[in-house]
Design a protein around this nucleic acid. Structure first.
Lengths: 358, 358
DNA sequence: CTGAAAGCGCTTACAG
DNA sequence: CTGAAAGCGCTTACAG
């Protein structure tokens, strides 16, 4: 590894000068010709700065801490991490990822990240929920992912807009010609279930379609789920299904197979999916949309960096595409079975708050 | 952050002494009573060592670099990372994870890791394959995951024992009473496909069961796959299916549904799964076994650390369970449909080579 | 515009 | 057994 001293020696200047130039603080302070020569030399010698040495003086490591619970069990985490890493890499940061199972390990892992002097934290949950920021994170720049600050509410966060997800999906089913749309929900209590169901109901109301308790069920992961779907089907004969997730969608798919029906031909299905690959490769007839995890990760890191560096560029603009406003539109898989050529959009709610001074 | 200087001041000794004690090099060099006092003081003051400052002197950061291609698209990566992180955390290391899509970004990301002074690298591929170690990694302690060194072959690696996977699964089907076992394979060329098919065939031969080309197909991810399974079924009427992965298994499941048959009652299915959650929660009747990704990650990091620290404890012993030898047995989901109470085991081949001197 | 000097928190010969 | 000193690679007032 080549150091500033070596460059200084070769250039016949002092280390101070090299430092000034290489950290871009040379304008009006170092002779332009020298500056250029030093930069060239650094490049030729393959200089890469030692961020650790720098951090000793600056207290800035350009390391971000990613604290997540059980990266393990949820496949979506991959895309989230990918988005986060891309954003980090783009800004010259790097990510230290730790995993926590319980509260004990969380404290320990956060301490470890602190000892490495991370500049800020990403705190990610497995599903959308209100949380209390861990005490160890208080006062440190932090952005929440798939979580909302349940306290005073001043922590920036990004999480899916569950209502819009349900609303969009249901509208799309209606637009595809479905007249009787069922909702196969989740029996566990979570923000996502409530929001998506409300979106579903609002869409039905807006489109003047049947709104009936008989068309809604909330099932768990147990064996009875498939039977419940079977019963709903017998009673109401829906022509469209909005499913809380891919697990629920598969029950619909199974029932369709047992009835000799084909999804995409006889009935329409939209399921929200955390696991795009499966849906795409396994079963082209099972239509799913994925949550914009990549974008969430990307936004979260961009936001965190702007907190850290204290700049005021609006981080929400990072994800402005297609002229959307507060919602984060994301292109996902096209839905051939609904004959829609346009991609489905899933929205993310972005909560921006005051920067935290550390 | 409390420093050694503060402790030294409070203890009335020099920083050198504190350093000696706190890094465990005090025996026979520092008064035992003082040592104990310093240790107590450090604990009371909540001292945590600054590993970055230390690294400036020692060239050891206790940071591991994890280089993987597209953490994103494969769900199994989560468990791999989890295992790796657990092993790292257990040994006082921390992991810097980077993602590469193409070769260009790979070089860049590896450079970034180097500039942060990582002590060693994990180089993980998405599926079992022979590879050429990137030049930038040459001479650095490195362990391969889901990959085998295609060159001189001196890089330690861990990857699934594909043959044993196929052999075990097929034997289990035979033991469950299946007399005509089909193999639904993968049409893409990969080590896993060849190995698993060979294991399947060997098991059939050992158990004296029908071995026929008609019972084997290799399908891709396209729509025709389900039709191919349908045709095989019509022609041969198997009572057991060994599936390359869960995607293939689902085709079997679909065909069973369309025929009014139930997996686990009328036929038996074993699929190798990269995505345990789905299989478990979605469809209790679809029987899959998962690859031991957690264990692979854990082993790889343990091995890497032993390379770095140059100790000679056999790292394969780390994963010795159930008295197995070179193979890595892993307990996975029980298989109720086959009425087996014992867990299925999947094996990993561990390739241990000479340590690399950096 | 430029360099000498001090210092970030630690480790490690070296002299006592 | 113990401490003063040098140094890891960098940054940043400060003096010229």
């Amino acid at each position: 590894m080549v150091t500033m001293r070596e460059i200084a020696h070769k250039a016949g200047v002092s280390v101070s000068t090299v430092s000034l130039v290489l950290s871009g603080k040379d304008s009006g302070r170092v002779n332009t010709k020298d500056a250029a020569r030093i930069r060239q030399l650094a490049h030729d010698m393959g200089y890469t700065m030692n961020p650790l040495a720098r951090s000793l003086r600056t207290n800035r490591t350009k390391i971000l801490g990613f604290v997540s619970e059980e990266v393990a069990t949820t496949p979506y985490a991959g895309r989230l991490i990918l988005g986060a890493q891309d954003a980090a890499s783009r800004n010259g940061y790097v990510m230290l990822t730790v995993n926590t199972d319980g509260l004990a390990s969380e404290k320990k892992e956060i301490e470890a990240l602190k000892s490495y002097g991370v500049d800020g934290f990403l705190y990610a949950k497995m599903y959308n929920q209100y949380i209390h920021l861990p005490d160890d994170l208080q006062g440190h720049p932090t952005v929440l992912v798939d979580a909302l600050d349940g306290d005073r509410g001043n922590i920036p966060s990004i999480s899916p807009d569950e209502f819009l997800i349900g609303y969009d999906a249901t509208c799309r089913l209606a637009d595809a010609g479905c007249r009787k749309i069922a909702y196969i929900g989740c029996s566990d209590p979570m923000l996502a279930q409530d929001g998506r169901r409300q979106g579903y109901e609002a869409a039905l109301a807006d489109r003047g379609l049947t709104l009936s308790r008989d068309l809604e069920i909330a099932v768990g992961n147990e064996r009875g789920a498939s039977r419940a779907v079977c019963k709903l089907w017998d009673q109401t004969q829906p022509d469209g299904f909005f499913c809380f997730n891919d697990a629920r969608a598969l029950h619909v798919y199974e029932q369709a197979a047992r009835r000799g029906l084909y999804v995409g031909k006889d009935i329409s299905v939209i399921g929200v999916d955390n696991h795009l690959v499966f849906a795409q490769t396994l079963n082209p007839r099972l239509t799913t949309v994925e949550l914009p995890h990549y974008e969430m990760g990307y936004w979260a890191v961009s936001k965190l960096i702007s907190l850290i560096e204290g700049d005021n560029r609006s981080s929400s603009s990072i994800l402005h595409r297609n002229g959307q406003d507060t919602a984060l539109p994301v292109s996902t898989v096209p839905i051939p079975s609904l004959e829609a050529k346009t991609p489905v959009r899933i929205h993310c709610a972005i909560i921006e708050k005051e920067s935290i001074v550390s």
